[in-house]
Design a protein around this nucleic acid. Structure first.
Length: 479
RNA sequence: GGCGCCGUAGCCAAGUGGUAAGGCAGAGGUCUGCAAAACCUCUAUUCGUCGGUUCGAUUCCGACCGGCGCCUCCA
């Protein structure tokens, strides 16, 4: 069964067919680096990571572009408030974003164009739209897109015409537009823009790019350079970007190129807290670095997110996270167990059903992800495999071929989900101490001095060391 | 007002026109000196409410209740 994806353009599940297989051009709306990204933002980036990884596992040659919005209303305001130049203010947040991505094991995009470094492409795009006649200079010196000149406007968000909410705030630049629904492509430079260094010269006036324009220009620029095309295979982002951001991107891009901007539009749902969208605005947010400082393993975050479909809202709370943390821990132990089948205490003899179980895992896993990236179902397949494989291993019914198949299947699954806990860093002093304590405890156990043995176990536990007596000796791990 | 999403066990959730995956938590059991880990068993006669279509609906349609989002350069 081929990969099917839910396309926001049609609101349907569609078989995925890239323009020129095996190449897939993927553009994902990146962060606005005015502040730290929160884990709601990262839910979207992780959904995109899942998409990217599964496309690659499926044999596609993905060219992934993620932009960094380093000039827009918020970055300018934040820089001005901090009394800094734009670049000075955004640099640490760019660095933080990459660090957070590393922590969450997000596969790197191939390019990260920055708005401030892509101004020439933006100016060219605006000029092209002016030449085509779909853009015009407003009385205020800004350049606007005339949505009435683009008949398809509203297709993505399913609006025949954009209705303005009754009583909605009237923008201060309203008077300058021909139609209140038109949006800015290029904003005339204001004193605050000059103050932070967010203004560029252009044939149509000194100013700065509108947010929507940035994504159109950067995506077209990148896929043009790399692949000589003007149509993206996939454009992804959060549902809140459908309107107006992505709608406007389509208008700008298609009015300029005359070609479909993106074949598939994918949108991830929100991360909620107590039923409400996680947002800086609401103050109910948590950053990736918060989680890292709390000692939360990225594996737990990823697993938690995978256990809800990307098009469903996910309600975040500590119980759910703790549950994922526990499940990730079990997966880690299982993985270790499978890794040492045949080479360690687990005897490998004959041939059991493990190979077949592994085969089923692979089939179920792919079938689940082929179905619009149904990661929750893929996780279900993984857990079922873990249980049945553990049963086989308990029976010591696995042979070396079984082991190989199981290891290969797990590796494949993990190449996409990547939910094994990060190995703990152990210093040699601790290791020596633990080994000495375990030796002392074994001695006590041999002497049937269970009181002493239990005391040592408690002593180890107090230092975060859990032990497990097995037929081949005492195992330990740091929790 | 326009467009859209959600309501499944204590928590997180998948799902199908034919009678409820999975994870966490909980209970009992096997194993163990005791534990731990692993495994086994149990834990929603029921999927917000009320109607309708149907032989049959959690799944389709309608209404309603409740929660939420976008329409304000939000992932």
């Amino acid at each position: 069964m081929p990969l099917s994806l839910h396309n926001t353009l049609t609101r349907r599940l569609e078989p995925f067919q890239p323009l020129a297989p095996p190449r897939v051009t993927l553009y994902t709306c990146g962060p606005t680096v005015w502040n730290y990204a929160h884990i709601g933002n990262f839910r979207t980036f992780l959904f995109e990571d899942l998409l990217r990884r599964y496309l690659e596992l499926s044999g596609y040659d993905v060219f992934h572009v993620m932009n960094l919005t380093d000039v827009d209303d918020r970055t300018i305001k934040a820089a001005a408030a901090a009394g800094k130049r734009l670049e000075e203010h955004t640099a640490p947040f760019v660095a933080a974003f990459f660090a957070d991505c590393d922590y969450l094991r997000i596969r790197k995009a191939h390019v990260y164009p920055r708005a401030t470094q892509s101004v020439p492409a933006m100016v060219r795009l605006v000029q092209r739209l002016l030449d085509t006649g779909v853009a015009y200079r407003g009385e205020d010196g800004s350049v606007y897109f005339a949505i009435t000149k683009f008949p398809n406007y509203g297709r993505l968000s399913q609006l025949d015409r954009r209705e303005i909410k009754v009583g909605a705030r009237v923008a201060s630049d309203e008077y300058a537009k021909d139609d209140p629904r038109d949006f800015a492509l290029w904003k005339k430079a204001e004193p605050i823009d000059e103050q932070v260094g967010a203004a560029w010269d252009a044939p149509f006036g000194r100013g700065r790019p509108g947010w929507h324009l940035e994504c159109s220009a950067m995506s077209l620029d990148q896929i043009g350079q790399c692949c000589r095309v003007e149509t993206l295979d996939i454009h992804a982002g959060g549902v809140d970007l459908i309107f107006p951001h992505h709608e406007d991107e389509i208008a700008q891009s298609e009015a300029a190129t005359g070609k479909p901007f993106a074949r598939y539009w994918l949108h991830g749902e929100f991360l909620n807290v107590g039923g409400t969208k996680m947002s800086k605005r609401f103050g109910n947010f948590l950053t990736a670095r918060d989680l890292r400082e709390q000692g939360v393993d990225a594996a737990a975050v990823r697993l938690l997110f995978w256990q809800t479909h990307y098009r469903q809202p996910l309600d975040f709370n500590d119980d759910a996270l703790a549950g994922a943390q526990e499940a990730a821990k079990r997966l880690g132990e299982f993985h270790e167990r499978v890794r040492f089948v045949g080479s360690g205490p687990t005897r490998a003899r004959g041939r059991g059903t493990l190979a077949q179980l592994a085969q089923r895992l692979q089939a179920d896993f792919r079938a689940a992800l082929d179905d619009d990236l149904n990661a929750p179902r893929a996780c279900g397949a993984l857990f079922e495999f873990m249980r049945s494989a553990n049963r086989e291993l308990d029976r010591e019914a696995a042979g070396s071929e079984d082991a190989q198949r199981a290891q290969a299947a797990l590796a494949e699954v993990m190449s996409v989900l990547d939910v094994l806990p990060t190995p703990k860093q152990l210093d040699s002093g601790l290791v020596a101490w633990v080994e000495e304590r375990i030796a002392a405890r074994d001695k006590a156990r041999k002497a049937k001095d269970f009181k002493e043995a239990d005391r040592i176990r408690a002593e180890l536990k107090a230092r975060g060391v859990e032990i497990e007596d097995t037929p081949s000796g005492t195992k330990w791990r740091v929790v």
